[in-house]
Design a protein around this nucleic acid. Structure first.
Length: 426
RNA sequence: GGAGAAAUACCCAAGCCUGGUUGAAGGGGGCGGUCUUGAAAACCGUUAGGUCGGCGACGGCGCGGGGGUUCGAAUCCCUCUUUCUCCGCCA
């Protein structure tokens, strides 16, 4: 949520900033509603003050046994005026709120405008691996080595589902455990979250109401729209709402959390050749980090999250690139996002395995997460998130980059302790 | 799933039946002070946090959330949420 005061005071600047990711912006109407709302509010406050005084007066008169008919009648009329004014006030308030709720975050100055095509590769790790034998694509390797069962996954759960089987499940689990251990060592707090979250979490994270259709809503017959729960599309949605409607003390910050969860996404209409296998499914595994910090520490936290995610990739010995996303590719609530994209040799493409973002106070304003500074003043907290990492995308990269001529897979060294010392999958 | 009870400020807690100097008693804790070399104890004082409007003076809202009744609601009515106790079921 963008601060309405920022729009009141710097309308042109905000409009210009929003144009980076919106086709057209005109905040005049919003400011008109805002002005009208405040006018009505001030008037109503005055009426209410008058009514309060009159109530005391009535009490006094009654105690003295005097007649109160006239003043009661007067207050009855005033009450009607207040009711009418409040209907208009509430309507304007909701209109303003709904409008603001749909505005995306203001991107950092250095984020390029335009879409995906303007993403900028900042750096790469290792060379593209070379193979002097015929490469097998990951979906064949995983099938041949009986690591993933695509057919039965689809049989029991429908399209874009799979089953990790045997050693495949173990590899996936090894990755998750390795990441968990690393985050604990880095001082992040391990959280196991509910997977079904309340609607307001989706709102707080900046995903709703715009992206209601991208998650699985769980709705019972008797529940209304705002009472629904949904399956979390990422652990960020839960972690970022942990302290909603709370005031933290500044010495509690930074707060560093991580969670492993399954993630559930509708992924409507996305079915491409390059997304076969476990690249994109309705359900996948991800370990996610979230930090709460003061506004002056977001750059530092951003670097930390990115470093941790990259560190994991480096320790796995994978070739990847880091991309700075252009405006159109950044999520709604973020003012900056860098992706780590791993090389999938058979397809000659890089696929996102981590996304590190800074939302500044956009999410905190939506879910009312504040902290108190040393002088006792209140501020919205800033939230950042980063995947560390999405394992279901990593397995295809590992089996391809680590494949051997005989069809076997060498297990990256850091994972071996998590797989009973196993070195090769064949 | 069934039956009860509850939610008041940083914490505990009174008020609710019987609506109006409760725009929230009292206690603890916090803060300030007296006393003391310092501290403790005792005593005195003080303490609604938040939010909205306003340059400000100040004003509005607030007793779990949302509605309603009323000139006026912590108090009466409806509704939702959460917690606790008992019963049932259950990994």
């Amino acid at each position: 949520m963008i601060d309405i005061n920022r729009i009141r005071n710097n309308k042109e600047e905000v409009e210009k900033a929003l144009l980076k990711r919106m086709d057209n912006v005109n905040l005049d109407e919003l400011l008109e509603w805002d002005k009208e709302k405040r006018q009505i509010g001030t008037l109503m406050d005055g009426y209410r003050a008058e009514r309060r005084k009159a109530s005391d007066k009535i009490a006094e008169l009654k105690r003295a046994g005097e007649n109160t008919d006239d003043i009661v009648k007067e207050m009855k009329e005033l009450g009607t005026k207040i009711d009418e004014g409040m209907i208009k006030y509430t309507e304007l308030d909701k209109r303003i709120f709904d409008y603001l709720a749909l505005l995306p975050n203001i991107l950092d100055d250095d984020v390029k405008s335009g879409g995906k095509e303007n993403n900028e590769v900042l750096r790469t790790n290792l060379e593209q691996p070379k193979f002097d034998f015929n490469l097998k694509p990951h979906y064949e390797i995983l099938k041949d080595l009986k690591m993933v069962d695509y057919d039965r996954g689809v049989k029991i759960a429908g399209e874009k589902n799979w089953i990790y089987t045997g050693i495949g499940a173990r590899l996936e689990w090894a990755l998750i455990n390795y990441f968990i251990d690393t985050h604990i060592k880095n001082g992040f707090q391990f959280m196991m979250l509910p997977y079904m979250l309340k609607y307001e979490c989706g709102f707080g994270a900046g995903q709703f109401p715009k992206f209601n259709d991208e998650v699985y809503m769980i709705k019972n017959e008797d529940e209304d729209e705002k009472n629904v729960k949904f399956l979390l599309p990422t652990a960020e949605t839960g972690l970022v709402n942990l302290h909603s409607n709370e005031i933290m003390n500044i010495d509690e910050l930074p707060k560093k959390y991580f969670a492993y969860t399954q993630c559930f996404r509708v992924e409507a209409g996305s079915s491409r050749e390059e997304e076969r296998g476990t690249i994109r499914g309705h359900q996948f595994n991800k370990v996610e980090m979230v930090e709460y910090v003061t506004e002056d520490k977001t750059e530092q936290a951003f670097d930390e999250l990115l470093n941790i995610a990259e560190g994991l990739m480096k320790s796995l010995g994978l070739h990847y690139q880091v991309s700075k996303l252009a405006a159109g590719d950044c999520a709604q609530g973020m003012c900056r996002t860098y992706d780590i994209e791993v090389w999938i040799p058979s397809m000659k493409i890089y696929k996102e395995v981590s996304s590190v973002s800074n939302s500044r106070d956009y999410q905190a304003r939506r879910n009312n997460t504040k902290y108190r500074d040393a002088d006792g003043n209140l501020h919205y907290a800033c939230t950042l998130n980063g995947s560390g990492l999405a394992t279901s995308r990593l397995v295809p990269a590992i089996v391809e980059q680590y494949q051997n001529e005989d069809g076997s897979i060498t297990i990256p060294e850091v994972l071996r302790p998590y797989m009973g010392g196993l070195e090769v999958i064949k």
